[in-house]
Design a protein around this nucleic acid. Structure first.
Lengths: 190, 190
DNA sequence: GACCTCCTGTACCAAATGGTACAGCTAGGA
DNA sequence: TCCTAGCTGTACCATTTGGTACAGGAGGTC
């Protein structure tokens, strides 16, 4: 679990992993360092300060978000199929630790934590912009597409919050199914 | 802003207010006490420990949630009107500080913070149960009603996350409008 | 007055924190 | 071989942390 120190990049990746699994809440530099098989001295050396490390963790989280977005919007065909695959990927338990970290950092950022704040940048708009494309291609008017994209993002995040708290995959899946059903019903018949 | 010490209840209320405004993140007992016009000695006296204070803050937050729920489900008639009023109340900027606190605590609880953990208890189910009633009364089948209630809750929380991050009231309102529109379209014509 | 309970200020503590100073290591280029 | 650059361990620092000991004070009851 430690996999020893060396290399800022490796250290950062390990730090993100640790923090995703244990929370960023009360952990001290020393605790994190110990879990990573290093000394807190090394973290200071590489990241300058605790805040510095935290900032990089947030940056890594942003990057993860971008990668996830890219992955999810790769194949853009029928919006409903896309939404289903989208959700299936998001709800994968393998992603839970990072999603928990995402929401923890989101919460801190909302409270103005300067290190977490950058995470909020484009946290909605980036996704909405990416989602609008397929919707418009399916024949939705631009302004309606924006509203629907925003709604879809909210549904995904809201149901993710639900899932992470309850673990009730079936219940959450049913709710998502209800959403796609509702959405399909409002489309003009093909 | 201080309004002086005295009375556990008053202290707790003030603590919640302070923590809603400043985040629970890195605040020490001494900082909180100073902002409340007391000494950290008093907080220890009344709440036993920092953890104890934190637990009570979370409890107060739960209570706030229940009150809000009761307030919102008081008049249960047409689900769509209810949803609209529901949302108008939730999106009120006056509630933002407490909602930010809610999401910060939610995030901490997801990461296993023992003091915040109780918040997760019934954090979905309580609301779903309350929302199912009006839906069934409007003629929705029980299992569909549960899924729709869960979906509605997710939409509310997801859009709230959006609103708190972006502040874009109009955009978020449009998304909510889209949701009610979609929902209305799936209802059998009356 | 004596007593009791609830509250509050002062002073203090050991422990842990983030951060620094400094010396030494290894590797590679000249 | 010498030198430089990047890395790492040891030891240390001042400060802050949560928590405690203790000595009162205010107010009521007998």
């Amino acid at each position: 679990m430690t996999e020893a120190g060396g290399g800022k990049e490796r250290l950062l990746r390990a730090a993100v992993e640790y923090v995703a699994a244990n929370g960023v809440g009360e952990r001290s530099l020393r605790q994190i360092a110990a879990a990573l098989g290093t000394s807190h001295r090394m973290l200071i050396y590489h990241f300058g300060s605790k805040e510095g490390l935290f900032v990089e963790v947030v940056r890594a989280m942003e990057e993860r978000q971008r990668e996830l977005l890219a992955e999810l919007t790769a194949a853009e065909d029928d919006p409903i199929d896309a939404a289903r695959r989208f959700w299936a990927r998001l709800a994968d338990p393998a992603l839970w630790p990072h999603e928990r970290l995402f929401f923890e950092l989101y919460g801190r950022a909302l409270q103005g934590d300067p290190a977490a704040l950058p995470l909020l940048d484009g946290i909605v708009d980036t996704w909405v912009t990416a989602l609008v494309g397929p919707l418009e291609k399916a024949g939705t008017a631009p302004d309606a597409a924006r509203a629907q994209a925003r709604l879809g993002l909210a549904v995904a995040r809201g149901l993710l919050l639900d899932l992470l708290a309850t673990g009730d995959r079936a219940g959450v899946d049913a709710a998502m199914e209800e959403f796609t059903r509702m959405y399909a019903a409002t489309l003009p018949p093909r």
